[in-house]
Amino acid sequence: MVKRYDRFEALKGVSLEVTAGQLVALLGPSGCGKTTLLRTVNRLVEPSEGTVYLGGRDVRGLDEVELRRGIGYVIQSIGLFPHMTVLENVMVVPRLLGWNKTRREPRAREMLALVGLEPALYAHRYPRQLSGGQAQRVGLARALAADPPVLLMDEPFAAVDPPTRERLQDEFLRLQAELQKTVLFVTHDLEEAVKLADRIGLMNMGQIEQYDPPSELLGHPKTEFVRGFLGPARTLLRLSRLPLEGLIEPLGPRSPAVQIPQTAMAREAFSSLLAHGGRELGVTDGNGQVIGVVRLETLLQAASEEG
């Protein structure tokens, strides 16, 4: 249990296990305890009851400074040091850990390239010379520089415009597929959680109402709060996690002019149908051959089913 300074409970009976290599999104309305829970992991908030284990070790038994240096932390406000260059910002944690310059500078350059910032162009710029999206990438590079096994991310993409946010999400998914970090990701955005997370912890008033993979959360809301929070968007979001393969029907005498690969998700097919004003799409295999069709009615039925 974690208490706020005003002595009201911020967290109540939370029990949460995160598997190594998974991205878990903490989702919920403002003030529900998401950030408080996140900050118990690196002891920025000390629990008054209960235990937080990291790699099987009670974090209270670890030196708090060393603990924080070993955990990547990315926040909405980024927190870049304005008087340091981009390269110097990325090298901050390796320098604190005692890495020599011949080790930390190549690592910082590698991380900048990894997040899509060419070191030759960005290494010697200052934060004021960056766009919001570029600054967020630098913040992510800095969090990854010392190769921490755990990343804590508190609404890291919330302060940028929607197109930039989508690009950052796509870039982060690519990085996570490559690096397989264990990530706790705070967001109030349902669509972001569904897109990024392996599991979602939906919180309400300091408690976890449901903790499940996105497809399970969307398909089987366990409480009225969960159902209400998901709202009408649940139907469309289910399609974003639903593979197209299971919805393919036999090809008729004529092949539809508009086609989509069988590896696509159902939401892509739904969007394509809306864009073209059709009622069915041809589905192609890896060789580009049409192997069947997917129909609008089938997609709508799959999106609305529970169970």
Rank of each mutant, 00 (worst) to 15 (best):
E306T: 07
L140H: 02
V283L: 14
R68M: 03
R267K: 15
A275F: 12
A25R: 02
R43F: 01
A197T: 09
N89T: 01
L38S: 01
G252F: 10
E306F: 12
P106W: 11
L96H: 13
E171M: 08
G133F: 07
A108P: 00
L11M: 05
F229L: 02
T298G: 13
R107N: 06
G28V: 11
S15Q: 12
P148W: 05
G98E: 10
V24D: 02
S240I: 07
Q22I: 00
G286C: 08
R104A: 15
R69N: 09
I75R: 04
G282L: 09
L244D: 09
N89K: 06
T19N: 14
M111Q: 11
G139E: 01
R254L: 14
L190W: 00
G292I: 04
L273K: 06
E66Y: 11
Q76H: 09
R238N: 04
D170W: 13
R234Q: 01
S77A: 15
G277Q: 08
V150F: 03
G252E: 10
L273R: 05
E171C: 04
T35L: 08
Q262F: 12
R128F: 03
F229V: 03
H83A: 10
A302E: 07
F8M: 15
R39E: 03
L151S: 04
D212G: 03
G70L: 05
R69G: 10
N287Q: 15
P221T: 06
E209G: 04
G278A: 14
L144S: 08
Q210I: 01
C32L: 06
V14H: 00
G286V: 02
R125G: 06
R279G: 15
S304I: 05
G61A: 14
R167V: 15
L130Y: 00
L37F: 00
S48W: 05
L242T: 13
V150E: 04
G231T: 08
I75Q: 08
E171H: 09
G28P: 02
G278H: 12
R241N: 11
L54S: 05
V45S: 05
L218A: 03
I291N: 10
L130H: 01
A269N: 14
I260P: 10
G56Q: 09
H188P: 05
Q136W: 03
A264R: 13
G33A: 05
E155W: 06
Q169F: 11
Q22Y: 04
V93L: 02
I71V: 10
L179F: 09
L300Y: 06
A146T: 07
G307L: 13
L242I: 11
V183I: 13
G50E: 02
V41C: 00
H220V: 14
V294G: 03
L175V: 06
E249H: 14
G21C: 05
Y5K: 11
G252Y: 10
A113I: 04
L44H: 07
K101Q: 13
V115E: 03
Y53I: 11
